[in-house]
Design a protein around this nucleic acid. Sequence first.
DNA 1: CCCAGAACGCAAAACGTTTTGTAGTGTGCC
DNA 2: GGCACACTACAAAACGTTTTGCGTTCTGGG
Lengths: 336, 336
Amino acid sequence: MHGGCRAKIGDVAAEAGVSVTTVSHVISGRRPVSAATRARVEEVIHRLGYQADPSARGLRTQRTRTLGLVVPDLANPFNAELAVGMQEITLAHDYLTVVCEAPLGGPYLPAVLRQLVARRMDGIVLGRYGATRRDLDLITGSGTRLVRLGGPLEAGPGDVVRAAEVEGMRDLVRHLVKERGYRRIGFIGGEEGVEPGGERFQGYRDALAEAGLDIPDDLVVWTSFTRDGGRIGAARLLAATEPPDALVCANDLIAIGALDTLRERGVDVPGQVAITGYDNIEAASLVSPALTTVLNPAREIGRSAARILMQRLDDDDHGPAREVVLAHRVVTRESA
Amino acid sequence: MHGGCRAKIGDVAAEAGVSVTTVSHVISGRRPVSAATRARVEEVIHRLGYQADPSARGLRTQRTRTLGLVVPDLANPFNAELAVGMQEITLAHDYLTVVCEAPLGGPYLPAVLRQLVARRMDGIVLGRYGATRRDLDLITGSGTRLVRLGGPLEAGPGDVVRAAEVEGMRDLVRHLVKERGYRRIGFIGGEEGVEPGGERFQGYRDALAEAGLDIPDDLVVWTSFTRDGGRIGAARLLAATEPPDALVCANDLIAIGALDTLRERGVDVPGQVAITGYDNIEAASLVSPALTTVLNPAREIGRSAARILMQRLDDDDHGPAREVVLAHRVVTRESA
DNA sequence: CCCAGAACGCAAAACGTTTTGTAGTGTGCC
DNA sequence: GGCACACTACAAAACGTTTTGCGTTCTGGG
């Protein structure tokens, strides 16, 4: 059992008594081959365990059948899920996914992108970054396809795949109203005007409007997207003349901070006041009571991005940029 | 700014007024080139942004300069760190790392390995699996280099990089016994027979034996290396006729799960029952109480594995199998 | 001044595919 | 029975490198 014993297409052809062309056609299906010949060739391919050499194929076709994924932090489960989703789809279509971590804040991103472009990735999925126009052009400039995970479509080249923030929050608040029967629902936002706070607030308003509940001005506060922000926000809302029976927070950190305040004051969650977060960060399931929140459909985003890329590549599709928006999923735990 | 405008080695040669051979020699350094010529060629390479086409190079050299990493679960931060460590080293040496997830328990592993071998990886790092001999031969049979992350050296082909699991767990349990005075110490393992569960269990047994404590059969359970596994395992152990005063878990996820169960039942940690984990993943310091655990040098393991592989490849080294053992460190926090 | 040897650069082959133009073989219709 | 046409299979070129054998140009010593 020594190395270097890989069958070549010529070996297959010889063994099957046909030319290499025919073998290639059997594999690619680009020209018809008689059923008998096809069967014979396929049998030989299987018996010899033949697999085309990707370097040779790539050299000829100018395609590597490889997609790159660049994320700021692989230890973040959101990004890991992204990778798994992509891999799931690519492997099934005989593509490969290469995952690279390029930490935020540093010269890493351009270096990693250059590497991937040099490696002739067919397409690149760029994670949630504040990528500069220069970074993006580095990719598309060499003909590499691009999918961005967030940001407005018109902010740069390539397609966009993202989650539906407005709808996600709407569904969460709907859950509070319809399933759980809460009526006086407050909102703790992050810095006012910073996305995705605005979109999430809109989802909250939509759901209340839909349920015929009014939006109590004294139950909406804007603080910051941090645990401390949540502490302060919750304290402010509890001081309202008619206090809320549920607190919807713009993200999980805020919710965890709010939880701190309530625990400190001996308020029972969710008995007296319910709490919800957003993002489903790791800590959301670690705190007590575990946080009801909204999950970013990371795996599905990865799948979609891979599908878009492969479809554009296989169809040689250079049509206008597309945007895919995926539904969030409400994760019901103990806090609401 | 249209695609397909990548410089070829011929373009560089023409621009620099030399032959392609010379350019190649400048790049590889395989034959001396006069300083003047070298400087001129390098300038042109830089100016044109030339990067050799990996397919063409791979076809000629029969090397892809690509290493594969196969792990059972990318969402596990230990594995993510592994990947980051490999990437760190490989990128610096102009190698690429391809990370693949192949979940435990299913037909995934052979399929993923076949993919990677078909893609002509130069080397593969196989994460912590109960890989069969057949799986391993699938890799080495085609000349692909292998590094295993655990298991005895003689259990199969390839080199081994691992942390000192037995010693790590022994030191941790010693700490419980000697510093903290716990006597009835239970053990929650992952899937039985899957490493590094066995080694960790042995460290646990060694420490108990050394302290003259007996190993209570009814205080050892095997579940799975997940949070849910920990929840279930802890519930089982608490039901013992004489419950434990400490729970040693085979990894941090299990410990966090065990913590869930104890919190739910109002058991004070570490007052009534102490808990320990293993790996020191990010979450270990986020939970409350913060987890006493053992630091698994995941990133360093990834680095070592990549270094071994690249060294063997670059030196065409087929010498006897090597084993690299990396030191662990007990991290004392609140839970024990 | 000439020659040996070192230093350097070139042309051409090879790597394993895919793809295109073309030759060969049946088959059905007139 | 001959011809056109579809259907198949083949030979050869191309993809962009690396590498080897060889020719050329210097350099310094006799």
